[in-house]
Every structure is written in C-alpha cells, then in structure tokens.
C-alpha cells in the first residue's frame, strides 16, 4: 500500500455456500482517480462494492480503503466513504432537507452543522428549490443527486468523502438524469475524491473512468485505461457502408480478405460491414481497391477504434463459454 492508493484489494474472496461470488479479486486504485468495474450480471461487481463499503464481510483476502482494513477497522472506513447503492437509499416521506439533516446527525455533526451542511449541499446539487418537498415527489435524476449529496454530508473535508462507491448509479435514469449524475460525479473527482464505479453501461465507464477493470466470474479478466483496453483487446476496425444491399454479401467476403479478418460483422438494415484490422493503412487501401475492381459502390469507408462494447463482449466471451455466442455489435448504440 502506498500513500497514493485509495483502494487496495488483494486476493479478495467471497463465498455464499458453494457459490463463489469473488474468487481472488486484485485491484489497486490510486488516489483521486475513477476506477470503473465492468462485467456481466453475476460477475461480482456488487459483491466487491458491498465488501469495500463494509456492508459485507469477505471470506478471504484483504481489502484496504482510505488506509484502513475493511474487516478490522470498519468504522474508520465508514468515516471516509460514501456509498451510492443501486436504489436511491432515501426516506421517501421526508423532504430532501430532512433526509440530509438526518444523515448529518447520524454522522454526529450536531443539529446546527447538519442543517448548515444540508443547505450547502442542496444549493450545490441544484435542489434548493425542492428542498422542502418530500422525496416521493422527486424525479429519478433529482433523487440520485440527493442520494449523492447524502454521501457527502458526513465527510470531514469539503471536497467530499475520500472514496466514493457508485453501484450502477444511472441504472433506470433517462439520458437527462444520467447527464446530471455524471456532471455531479465529475465535480466530486475534481475535488479529489476517488471513485469506484460499477456499471453495465460501457459508455458510462468510457465517460467517467480513468481505468477500467473487466470482471468475470469474480475476478479481473482485463484492466487498463479505456484507450489501452480498446487497443489491447480489440484491434482497430474498418467500417464499410455498401450502396446496394444486394451486394452486401459479395462485399463482405472482399472486405474480409482485404482486412485479413476471420470474421466480418454485418448490419443489413444499415448496409454496414465491419471487420477488425491489424495494418490500418494497408487494409484501407486494399479494401478500396478490391471494391472498385468488383464494381461495388461504397457510400462510406472509415477506420475507427473499437467501442468498449466490443472490448467487453470479446473479453467476457473468451472467459465465459456461455457468452461465446455473443457477436460484437458494430455500433456503440447497443447496450450490453
């Protein structure tokens, strides 16, 4: 453990009976960074967050958060973390202000300081106008922002807790609510908070995370920055939009040969072909030449980086045989 690490996890295991939820998780998160945890359902993301936030005791291994062992010194950890679970953990009948004041008192701020902090946080999260309304009248995005504010009320320094756990923070939110939560998280990170983020939305990890760990069957199967992951695990791709849908198949075999790719994905509706490439420029030149020689007209030809969706499916498909049938969608619009 160095002073620069907010989270240090070594060989963390969790068993429920015979079922292994975590089987030797290793993870190091430096201070002030955003660590994304990606993985299919049941990969162990939530279990990891629950152990690190002291809600669950590990079966084995070691985890330190903000310098303290989660199993041996849970109260020390609790003073330094904020937890945003999958559901907004608020009292629906209390107003936003009453919720914050209640949590502030439970952090032993005292009634006056709790009230002052609550006022500040309502301002900061743009909830001052709704502060006196019961939470049951809030929109999904407002609830999530209040939930975030509640994570911050007890922290000793103004910038927020040292480590913030976000377990699928935008699941069920509309795009606007999602944007609101993202900008709130970004401003916290600017204040120096370390964030551990689990998500099923690859775009979310791409937007927020400095580093991404892909979890499968309770352990990390790939890790790196979003860029590095894309480079390491998915080659660049060539996309070709064919004008005549009848010639899509013919074009697919040509593109496959030109790019020296084993597989070409097809999107018939959009007349789009996509194949991984190793030598970018050669593949581009050969594709143009081959299509021209065959008299197939292309509307668009482009080289691009793979999306995280493609990386994600590739990574988890190689480790989990059950997911092997999944083929990478050609666009970023697909949800994982």
């Amino acid at each position: 453990m160095t002073d620069g690490d907010a989270i240090l996890v070594e060989g963390l295991r969790k068993e429920y009976g015979t079922k292994q939820a975590l089987s030797g998780l290793d993870l190091t998160v430096p201070n002030g960074t955003v660590q994304g945890l990606l993985g299919p359902n049941g990969a162990g993301k939530t279990t990891a967050v629950r152990i690190l936030s002291t809600l669950l005791r590990p079966s084995g291994g070691r985890a330190r958060v903000a310098g303290f062992d989660v199993a041996a010194e849970p109260d020390q950890v609790r003073h330094r973390i904020g937890l945003l679970g999958q559901h907004a953990a608020l009292d629906e009948e209390l107003s936003g202000r009453e919720n914050l004041e209640m949590f502030g008192r439970l952090y032993h701020l005292g009634a006056r300081r709790a009230a002052a902090r609550a006022g500040d946080l309502l301002e900061r999260f743009d909830l001052a106008a709704a502060g006196r309304k019961p939470v049951s009248a809030y929109s999904g995005g407002m609830r999530r922002r209040l939930d975030l504010a509640a994570c911050l009320i007890g922290s000793e320094h103004r910038g927020g807790p040292r480590v913030l756990f976000l377990d699928e923070p935008t699941t069920g939110l509309d795009p606007r609510g999602r944007g609101e939560v993202w900008s709130a998280v970004r401003s916290l990170v600017e204040g120096g908070t370390t964030v551990l983020l689990t998500t099923q939305y690859l775009e979310e990890a791409d937007q927020l995370a400095d580093d991404i760990a892909v979890l499968d069957a309770g352990r990390v199967v790939a890790q790196g920055s979003p860029d590095a992951l894309k480079t390491r695990l998915g080659a660049d791709r060539i996309d070709v939009v064919v004008r005549d849908p009848a010639r899509l198949e013919a074009a697919a075999s040509l593109v496959g040969m030109a790019a020296r790719a084993a597989e070409v994905s097809r999107d018939t509706d959009r007349r789009l072909l996509s194949a991984p490439v190793t030598d970018r420029m050669a593949a581009l030149a050969e594709t143009v030449r081959a299509l021209e020689a065959a008299g197939i007209e292309a509307e668009d030809i482009a080289l691009r980086r793979p999306t995280l969706d493609e990386v994600f499916l590739h990574t988890t498909a190689t480790t989990a045989p059950t997911a092997a049938t999944a083929t990478a969608p050609a666009t970023k619009e697909g949800t994982a």
């Binding site: 973390i81 937890l83 679970g85 999958q86 559901h87 953990a89 629906e92 439970l106 007890g154």
Partner: peptide
C-alpha cells in the same frame, strides 16, 4: 430493507443498535 436505506445506515459510522 428494500429501499436500501438500511444499507446506507450500515455504511455510516453511527451506533449499530440505533
């Protein structure tokens, strides 16, 4: 329990019994 409020109480350094 279902709203996760208990989880938040348990992640706060408050008295366990409260």
């Amino acid at each position: 329990l279902n709203k996760g409020v208990i989880d938040r109480f348990r992640s706060i350094p408050m008295a366990r019994s409260a």
